[in-house]
Amino acid sequence: MTKEELKSALEGLIPVEGGAVSGAAADGDSPKGAAADGAAVFEEGAEWLTMKIASGDWSTYARLLRHTPGLSFDYLFCVTGVDWRTHFTMVYHLTSTVHRQVLVVKARLDHDHPVIDTVSDIWRTAEFHEREVYDLMGVIFTGHPDLRRLFMTDDWKGWPLRKDYEDPINMIKL
């Protein structure tokens, strides 16, 4: 499935804003997340088709992406949290073992209250990946069955992968 075919398949499925964000500026840092009315926005210029959505829509869209026959995104291979100082971006890399197309979904989260729905009930692998993001980035996944620290000890203070994190004892900035 080519990028264009995937794009048109998605447009039939979820509300998408017409104008795509273009060029290399189309990263998580651009002030624009999803469109104001909550419609998804496609990003051009990347290797794979990238779709920006409003964080509140994620669990609904995730279910659609997983269960729509022509798409069947059954394999979530990478979950990343990015701290942009003013906001967070959650990046989900999805692919299908049937159709082999790749889709990147990005959701913008508020910096003071980074909250997004869990998808661990859709893709089991998300359970560990989301725990990792919570542990290192401090993003809360609502509905996660077991949201605890994963690498750090239970009484650890702070979120090590955030940009403003300072630890004078365990220095990780070289």
């Binding site: 290192l136 620290r149 994963l150 690498f151 750090m152 000890t153 090590p160 992968l161 990780i172 900035k173 070289l174």
Partner: peptide, 16 residues
């Protein structure tokens, strides 16, 4: 239970 050899390589790489 993980983390006994967690070195935060991702964070380290941000300054390399």
């Amino acid at each position: 239970h993980l983390g006994y050899i967690h070195r935060s390589i991702e964070k380290m790489c941000e300054s390399l």
